[in-house]
Design a protein around this nucleic acid. Structure first.
Lengths: 252, 252
DNA sequence: CTCCCGCCTGCCGTTACGTCAGGGTCAAGC
DNA sequence: GCTTGACCCTGACGTAACGGCAGGCGGGAG
């Protein structure tokens, strides 16, 4: 099985220039050439290219990739294990960023100020520096985002007032429920939790049950959120937290 | 609240040079200068920087970031929504890569050959191109990876024979169980599923319940895996699949 | 007043390619 | 057998996002 540069490029989803470059720097030289000088790649070359692309995606500089791949002590299985490990580390990191964004969203919704240090916490000790051309023409192209933006962009002053009113109405009802001593995992509290979720979804952003329980956790974990709800009624933060979790579990 | 370049750099986790660069290209110019020409950043500048860093991490070129941030139609909440959306898209993508790696791991374990196209499927239509300096000195530095590598590196020929023997022993027992008509969600089948998971963990890589059910799904979804197990005994693929799922649920 | 650390402005270097330019090649069709 | 368009080759220069100096002020603690 022999392939030309163009074929390899199409299969692997890279440009011909990239393959030329990898040849130049000795990262991936085709196993042979035709009499007329055309590059000929074989299956082993493709395997190597696959390794290269994974490590590249994982953020390694090409020079280092050369060293990693040429390391005779690393068999294919070792590479797979390493890549699996690196991928999960990166996913964890992105999930932390998601949490940070959700935190910021909720903070802005409740008008809570963050300190500068807090805002950059997620960038703390680890040098980010990423790129992804994939984002290029994709910007603003994700359905959910457009959806959400369309929604908010159309809000009139009137809408905002209605939103505020709905929120306050919801607040009054849950305070009453708490005062009446209704259990947080009872049907009324769960219904109000669900309503809370749907208020967010209607006015701000699609709020899944997962995101919702994330918010609930923040209400207890961060003192400013706690203070916001405790300020409305003593015990409300914990009450809402429990109700949201109970609601999420029962609907799942 | 006014900050010098150095302070901002420390807070945000970037270099002073980077801030100079952002000033040069007009992406983030400090709101003022001291009489002697020192840059003075204020809180608004920090907020802007935070936006910049998030979009940078999400892979946008700086020029585009300038356009996005200077877009007067986008309020802070819109940015948060967009970033949340982009982050989840990227997480999904990485999880696909994880699945692809797990697939490749399992394929190599069972000696199944992949076609070149399959190997690059995950890079298919979307231009990867990522970087993360974080990986730099971190390479080979993740506990689980070193663990796993230490394990495999020490295997002698004897160990490999033992591994093969254990595997075959497990195979005989599950075939017997299947032949005896024991239910796939019964205790014996679940025990053998658990043993399967622990065999992988002992010999190859730490296999969580989540990964294990992922493997089980592949056994049914991919015909080569199915064929591998069906070849041992008719109905074994589905049987193992169900047993693994039952086991994972009961231990969770 | 003196240090040393921090800040300033150039300016050149680097990585991982993109993008021509100028020219040979291959296979399909006439 | 010849054309033609798609494909390949090797330079060589361009670009983005900084890194890393050099050479020279600024500033606050002792």
């Amino acid at each position: 099985m022999a392939y030309t540069v163009g074929q390899v490029a199409r299969i692997a989803g890279v440009t011909v220039r990239t393959l030329h470059h990898y040849d130049e720097i000795g990262l991936l030289s085709p196993s042979g050439r035709t009499p007329t000088g055309y590059r000929r790649y074989d299956d082993a070359d493709l395997q190597r290219l696959q390794l290269v692309l994974y490590y590249r995606e994982l953020g390694f500089p090409l020079e280092e990739i050369t060293a990693i791949i040429d390391d005779p002590a690393a068999d294919p299985a070792a590479h797979l294990r390493r890549q699996h490990e690196l991928l999960t580390v990166r996913i964890k990191r992105l999930q932390e960023m998601v949490t940070a964004v959700e935190f910021a969203m909720e903070a802005s919704k409740l008008n809570i100020q963050l300190t500068p240090e807090e805002r950059f916490e997620v960038f703390g000790d680890f040098r980010p520096e990423e790129h992804a051309a994939e984002a290029e023409q994709r910007w603003g192209d994700t359905d959910a985002y457009r959806e959400s933006n369309r929604r908010v962009a159309r809000y009139s002053k009137d809408d905002w007032l209605r939103n505020k009113a709905e929120n306050e109405d919801w607040g009054r009802r849950i305070v009453a429920l708490l005062a009446a001593g209704a259990p947080a995992d009872g049907p009324e509290a769960m219904d109000l939790a669900e309503e809370h979720r749907q208020l967010i979804s209607r006015w701000f952003y699609e709020c899944s049950y997962e995101m919702h329980t994330g918010l609930a956790d923040m209400y207890l974990a961060d003192e400013r959120f706690t203070a916001y709800y405790e300020n409305i009624a003593a015990g409300l933060a914990a009450y809402l937290h429990e109700a949201i979790h109970a609601n999420a579990i029962s609907r799942a």
